[in-house]
């Protein structure tokens, strides 16, 4: 009986939602909405895929979780700046930046990538990690994927310039590691970036 009541309750709730009337114009997105006619059919078929075994790298070991109760005071005290990977100098300290929600390499940063490629050619033993970062706008899980695409764009550019892809690793920190903790366009532009770190 309770379940029936609950279902009825939900049905009524949604019928109530259906009757919501927006009196004024709805807020406009800052970018034009996707046009319906640009969209391919609403339903499409996904490609066939094969089963596979879960792969686990050897260095990952099972362990026991160490559970610790924490208080707001402890939390406040633990908010030290995020540990940075080693700061680079020289050409690897340069960064490339991106437009909002984009991961294509801008013309103005081609010279930076060429410099890095030349450096890697001159130092064949060096391997690098490219970190992709985002600004705080958007949602965190999606920004994580965006940061990865940025790192991969930079990697592809370096590979196209003749660098062995095995010498380049990529990772995304999404919006978790901003360069500048401010909420303005200048800070966001600087935070949308790729950093290049030497793998030691």
């Amino acid at each position: 009986m309770r379940k029936v009541l609950l279902i009825l309750c939900v049905l009524v709730l949604f019928s109530a939602c259906a009757k919501q009337k927006v009196v004024s114009q709805p807020p406009q997105a800052d970018i034009k909405p996707v046009q319906q006619e640009q969209v391919v059919p609403k339903e499409q078929k996904a490609p066939e895929m094969k089963l596979q075994e879960a792969q686990i790298q050897q260095k990952e070991e099972p362990k026991k979780a160490k559970v610790e109760e924490v208080t707001p005071t402890m939390i406040a005290q633990a908010q030290t700046p995020t540990l940075e990977t080693a700061k680079e100098d020289g050409v690897l300290s340069k960064m490339i930046h991106f437009d909002f929600d984009k991961y294509d390499i801008k013309k103005e940063y081609v010279s930076v990538l060429k410099e890095i490629a030349e450096y890697l050619k001159a130092n064949p033993d060096i391997r690098i990690l490219i970190e992709g970062h985002c600004d705080e706008r958007g949602t965190r899980e999606y920004n994580l994927q965006l940061g990865m695409r940025r790192a991969e764009s930079a990697k592809k550019y370096l590979v196209d310039l003749g660098i062995d892809e095995k010498r380049i690793e990529t990772i995304s920190y999404g919006e978790d590691r901003p360069l500048i903790n401010e909420q303005n366009e200048s800070a966001w532009a600087k935070n949308r970036r790729c950093e290049f770190k030497r793998i030691k």
Binding site: A54, Q57, P62, K63, T85, E169, I171, I199
Partner: peptide, 23 residues
């Protein structure tokens, strides 16, 4: 991972085993 790449890990909240499931 420090050198790129990530793993998915599963914590069993009863016995507190923290095991890698995919990396």
């Amino acid at each position: 991972f420090k050198t790129g790449g990530t793993s998915l890990r599963l914590i069993d909240l009863k016995n507190l085993d923290d095991i890698p499931i995919y990396s």
